[in-house]
Nucleic acid binder design. Structure first.
Lengths: 195, 195
DNA sequence: GAATTTGCCTAAAGCTATTAGGCAGATGCA
DNA sequence: TGCATCTGCCTAATAGCTTTAGGCAAATTC
């Protein structure tokens, strides 16, 4: 029989493309086999199972995202860096909705620790060096930025901001302004007025 | 044969409980049938199909969340209201992870428009009346709050803030402080320095 | 060129989703 | 109370996805 040249890498890549086309949820071993015009069982020599395939796609997405983020941050600081990083996530999600969804896949701790996921946190920390935050505020800020980026992108893509006025681009720009302002004036915990 | 007394409502309720136990993704018509000790086909007289079941669970979750939110906002204003609303989402997600996941289900526009989803936006707007924002800034702020709440909760639950220091409760408190500060000093769009 | 390894195949079993049609218990009506 | 209807759960059957076991031929190795 003609050999198609399947490899885990090609399957992962094709799986990522499939995810962008039909949604990450719909990425199935069967669909992938069809795409290569090959019988389903043949894929099992290259990926352990369906879960393994999804995990590989997730890792691919995390890596691509981290690479883009590193690129975007290079030579930028302050608000410019903030906007650049934020736009990496938003643009990636728009260009590659399936991969972006894959990047949210819950990985087991060992896999997550070895993934490009850690680079994301590192880069956000790097970005924050342009602002005047010391631990533990820096970590708080890392988590805030992660929440806003992820939350906004996922709500926007899910249609949460129904195509109503004002334009979501405007909101995005204003949110980035607001975050910049906030990071430059990170508030102390308020003293309890009842204290 | 003994009649079990299936109804769409009981199936939805049981589906929600199942979701909290095994995850929304694992909510399946088959699993639900097992739970009622009934054959799978029997459920199809009560729910149209798997998608219909999931949608009903999502609507249930959205309603429960909106009810809790309304309760939390009653008699509160300003930062107190902000924290109360924020905690509704976070606590609900912790108590009912499956339902919270269900609430993120992408609904078709008609269903979404008729859902309790709209109440959520209204309540966030109500909350913002305690701050001095006029349109379109109010909408920007609604979207920001939605993003932070959803983003934080989903990252925290997904293990994104690995059980490392500082405590996620601390971060949460500081983020609410920060949002309060931000809303009380909502920044104007910066003038382009190149202008 | 023979031996071994590798890659895709056939076959088969198990689970989920969904539809069609049947039977008995519940309900409505005389 | 008895009959007719209707409703609710059932059996049966089709179809798709997942996964494992074992086979054969093409590619690789020597």
């Amino acid at each position: 029989m003609a050999r198609v040249g399947l490899t885990p890498e090609r399957l992962t890549q094709a799986g990522a493309e499939l995810a962008d086309e039909v949604g990450f949820e719909q990425v199935t071993v069967s669909a992938l086999a069809r795409r290569f015009d090959v019988k389903v069982a043949s894929l099992y020599s290259h990926v352990k199972n369906s879960q393994d395939l999804r995990t590989r796609i997730a890792l691919l997405a995390l890596t691509e995202l981290a690479d883009r983020a590193a690129d975007a941050l290079a030579g930028r600081a302050g608000k410019e860096a903030l906007a650049a990083l934020a736009n990496v996530y938003r643009d990636y999600a728009r260009e590659h909705p399936g991969r972006y969804a894959a990047a949210q896949l819950r990985l087991d701790p060992r896999t997550a620790a070895a993934s490009a996921g850690v680079r994301h946190a590192q880069m956000t920390r790097a970005l924050l060096r342009g602002y005047d935050l010391t631990e533990p505020d820096q970590t708080h800020a890392v988590r805030l930025l992660g929440s806003v980026f992820h939350g906004y992108v996922s709500l926007e893509m899910g249609g949460g901001f129904s195509h109503s006025a004002p334009d979501t681009d405007d909101t995005w720009a204003r949110i980035l302004d607001a975050l910049d302002t906030l990071l430059r004036n990170w508030p102390e915990p308020p003293t309890d007025p009842r204290g």
